[in-house]
Nucleic acid binder design. Structure first.
Length: 494
RNA sequence: GCCCCCAUCGUCUAGAGGCCUAGGACGCCACCCUUUCAAGGUGGAGAUCAGGGGUUCGAAUCCCCUUGGGGGCACCA
């Protein structure tokens, strides 16, 4: 049987790191075994679901390169796959029919308990140090009793009878798991009083309808799995196999959350993390090749992936390691590709007035040799060479003076460097032409070259850490270098 | 509270009874390279494999208990 897996996000927030990781593992498994990767939107929480979040999630998955084989229609694109629609609120009749069947078979029943009543039950159980569970007040109402409540205008929610016994399954990553249905919290609601279906119900109806063979999802669903298995059986469907992935954790080892970590993929994209790095990093959270390889492309991961080799323990999200991987991947990008990816970040710097104009692609290309290996993220470009794209830089008088120098020496040094640089012709304004005379200058005056270079560096960039000085001077151009050196001199002498 | 799951350097991990005086990577430290910063190279610190019992000639690897951590117990997903 060919494998069918799915990612079923809920459009109640922007694409979350955890969702992306689950999607990735589903994708990897599907591609590795030549199966089908399905995208289904679980939008039954009508209050919190929005089309904007839906859009965000789809865009994010696509950005990561996780293309789905079957999924909903979006922005004019028709739905793909034989099981459309792929948006749960458009599949309501299916759930209604399934609910009808369960009701008819008395495997489910209407419950008229009010939220307040349920709440009171829960509080009482809590006070008695008992596990919260539905007490079964409506489990055995006679038809007359039901009619009476309906006549009173009450509308029942539908509860599924969990019965008794032990539910066992063999999880692909966790192995054999057994849970006594007594610990499920009693009969659970599958359809709200307003007629809209709930997650535990829709997920089963749809996984069955769509022929899902492996349910690959987060470990937080492990305890819910028996409910799903019971439902699959009650509906007369085959039970799929399950693979519960270890959770991604905050530094304090709790489930990764917005409160304690950055969880939105958007934020990582906005900071200049690239898809190759994110995918590579996420794949290595909870899985490894078993070898010492770790810089892996999506294709390479697909080739090596084995859902059965996924770990059981949760993994702390380590941003430092992600940044390192990002740098590794940035260094591997072809020039044109890197320029294309850099451009939006430079544009954003212009928009935010961090720099004053947009450099040309050619200018960016000429900078690549010195910035490519220095970028931890694409967003760091302005920080690295933003001084090139502003009219003037702010220079701090104190910073201009090298540690071993005093103000007088600095004035002398910058002034002499200015004249030396000016004497290098415009046409010969190359790094190889600038370095020798400046070194000779330092030697003639008995200065350490590094001190002279540092003074010039700060004078023309306003900072102490920059790409190599001579490349920086060339990038600025002769006139601007002279201008900035003069300006630095006036700062020092004023 | 009840149920379930998990447990190797700070972090991500290798390890499927002898190859482990536990390997790699991130981070950290030092040195090299070097005009600064990175990148790169070399080296180092860092885990008595949570603890305790077994099983075995032999255990990080198998079993049990304890401890610790996490997740789940909604008319959320």
């Amino acid at each position: 049987m060919t494998s069918r897996v799915r990612i079923a996000p809920s459009p109640t927030g922007p694409l979350h790191i955890g969702t992306a990781r689950t999607a990735l593992f589903n994708f990897l498994h599907a591609r590795h075994v030549g199966g089908t990767f399905i995208l289904r939107l679980e939008d039954t929480d009508v209050v919190r679901s929005t089309v904007e979040f839906e859009r965000d999630i789809l865009d994010g998955l696509r950005w990561l390169g996780l293309d789905w084989d079957e999924g909903p229609e979006v922005a004019g694109e028709p739905a793909r796959g034989p099981h459309a629609p792929y948006r749960q609120m458009e599949r309501l009749p299916l759930y209604a029919a399934a609910a009808e069947r369960l009701l008819g078979d008395d495997m489910a029943y209407p419950c008229y308990c009010t939220p307040d009543l349920l709440d009171a039950d829960r509080k009482a159980q809590e006070a008695a140090k008992e596990a919260p569970r539905y007490v079964g007040r409506c489990a055995h109402l006679t038809p007359d009793e039901r009619l009476a409540r309906e006549a009173d205008g009450l509308r029942g929610a539908l509860r599924f009878r969990v019965g008794e016994g032990i539910v066992a399954f063999d999880d692909i990553v966790r192995g054999h798991v057994e849970i006594d249905v007594r610990n499920l919290g009693g009969d659970f609601i599958i359809v709200r009083a307003d007629g809209t279906p709930l997650y535990h119900f829709t997920v089963v109806v749809d996984d069955a309808a769509m022929g899902i063979t492996e349910v690959i999802r987060g470990e937080d669903h492990l305890s819910n799995t028996p409910k799903h298995i019971l439902l699959f059986r009650a509906l007369g469907h085959d039970v799929p196999r399950f693979a519960h992935l270890p959770l991604i954790l905050n530094p304090d080892r709790t489930k990764m959350s917005k409160r304690k970590s950055q969880t939105a993929i958007d934020d990582y994209i906005a900071q200049g993390f690239i898809r190759e790095a994110l995918v590579n990093y996420l794949a290595l959270l909870g899985w490894s090749t078993g070898t010492e390889e770790e810089i892996l492309s999506l294709d390479a991961i697909v080739e090596r992936f084995d859902i059965g080799a996924v770990h059981k323990g949760g993994a702390v999200f380590d941003r430092e390691r992600l940044e390192w991987l990002n740098g590794q991947w940035i260094r591997r990008l072809p020039a044109d590709d890197l320029i294309d990816r850099l451009r939006p970040f430079v544009e954003a710097d212009v928009a935010a007035a961090r720099i004053e104009w947009m450099p040309s692609d050619d200018e960016l290309r000429s900078l690549l040799p010195v910035i490519q290996e220095r970028l931890p993220t694409l967003g760091a470009v302005g920080d690295l060479v933003g001084f090139l794209w502003v009219r003037d830089v702010d220079v701090d008088a104190a910073m201009l003076v090298p540690k071993r120098w005093d103000v007088a020496t600095t004035v002398e040094g910058i002034s002499a460097a200015r004249d030396t640089i000016e004497s290098v012709g415009d046409v010969a304004f190359e790094a190889e032409e600038l370095e020798p005379p400046l070194r000779a200058l330092a030697e003639a005056r008995g200065w350490k070259a590094g001190d002279l270079f540092m003074a010039v560096r700060v004078a023309v960039t306003g900072r102490t850490a920059t790409p190599p000085l001579f490349d920086t001077l060339v990038a600025l151009g002769r006139d601007r270098v002279i201008e900035r050196l003069d300006r630095a001199l006036s700062v020092l002498t004023s």
